[in-house]
Design a binder for these strands. Structure first.
Lengths: 192, 192
DNA sequence: GTCTATAAGTAGATAGAC
DNA sequence: GTCTATCTACTTATAGAC
């Protein structure tokens, strides 16, 4: 596509994921993309449009990355292993691979009205992936009994999303974090 | 203490917990406290000072509420039941009892430099409570083997904190949320 | 396509009356 | 103690040159 446009999007994701929606200035975005502020308006009609596109793109990247991890698992994999693959994919895209992804999780809750709605479809599609995984686990008979499947899904995704708030690569390796998260998710969902 | 000062603090917590740090305007705070903006400066030297006090107060309230839940548990309670009491207390103070508490969890990650440091001591004291609980569980021999205790703590607190982003009382009752969270935490930490 | 210059609006903070 | 009036700084957005 257009290189400058992509650079502006990447700069926005970078700053959004660190400073938050309301703390993200067009001047900072432009500086990070090696431009002056007005140049942004050649590619985007407003700050809100730019932010909205980054958020939608970020949510799409998370969904695609997790989706790929699930569909590229060995055929006939037990459902719980697909769930563990999803845990790893979610953490890697969020913490290691993409500012777009962390921009979404760190800002989804405090978006101005217009942007929130524009994200809704993408967000619903992502949650549908997890809902399907948990329903498949229930159908396989391995889900721990008495668990509210919708609440469990949100608690798990919450634990994963919150890592963006505290994880420090100098303190814990990403591999250790992933292994611990997988262990906790497996143990909390299954009975064995 | 001073009623007006308290009203300003409460108004700030209310708006902070809904709109985020950078989205919180002094004019909105003043209006919610039934005052004009300059009156705020009679009680606080700056917007940052006001926000910092609300955040420290919120973190203190969470810590005290959880601490009380633990110490008022029946004597000789098994550690895992203290942990379940802590889960309930954290969710209740956050979702039901205090705008100050939700102001903390929804903004802790994106605070301007000055405020972040002023919250550090309170925040460390709260995490120490959970660290003690998990260490006691390990010493009792009931902690699942091979679990990184520090990462597990952050994943659990993250799952609880994230509820502020999605929980809707019209969709799930708080009691159901608490029971599900307790079940998941117990199952993820213990082997039985 | 990207710039300089600037308009228009908004937010934090202060001055001083009451 | 709280107000009205105002200052200053900052941010989004536009105009128009190059």
């Amino acid at each position: 596509m257009n290189a400058t446009r992509e650079r502006i999007l990447a700069a926005t994701a970078h700053i959004l994921s660190r400073r938050g929606v309301a703390g993200t200035r067009l001047a900072d975005i432009a500086a990070h993309a090696d431009l002056r502020t007005p140049a942004v308006y050649y590619y985007f009609t407003s700050r809100n449009d730019l932010v909205a596109e980054v958020m939608r793109d970020g949510q799409r990247r998370v969904r695609e990355h997790v989706h790929n991890a699930i569909t590229s698992a060995p055929p006939e994999s037990p459902v719980i292993e697909l769930i563990e693959a999803a845990v790893e994919a979610h953490l890697r895209i969020e913490l290691e691979l993409s500012d777009f992804a962390s921009a979404v999780t760190r800002n989804a809750g405090q978006l101005p009205p217009g942007i929130a709605e524009s994200l809704h479809l993408e967000s619903a599609a992502y949650h549908a992936i997890w809902r399907n995984l948990l329903e498949a686990l229930a159908e396989s008979g391995q889900l721990r009994t008495g668990l509210d499947i919708g609440i469990a899904r949100m608690l798990i995704i919450g634990a994963l999303n919150w890592t963006a708030e505290w994880w420090n690569p100098e303190h814990d390796s990403l591999d250790t974090l992933i292994a611990t998260a997988q262990s906790i998710v497996r143990s909390s969902l299954t009975s064995s």
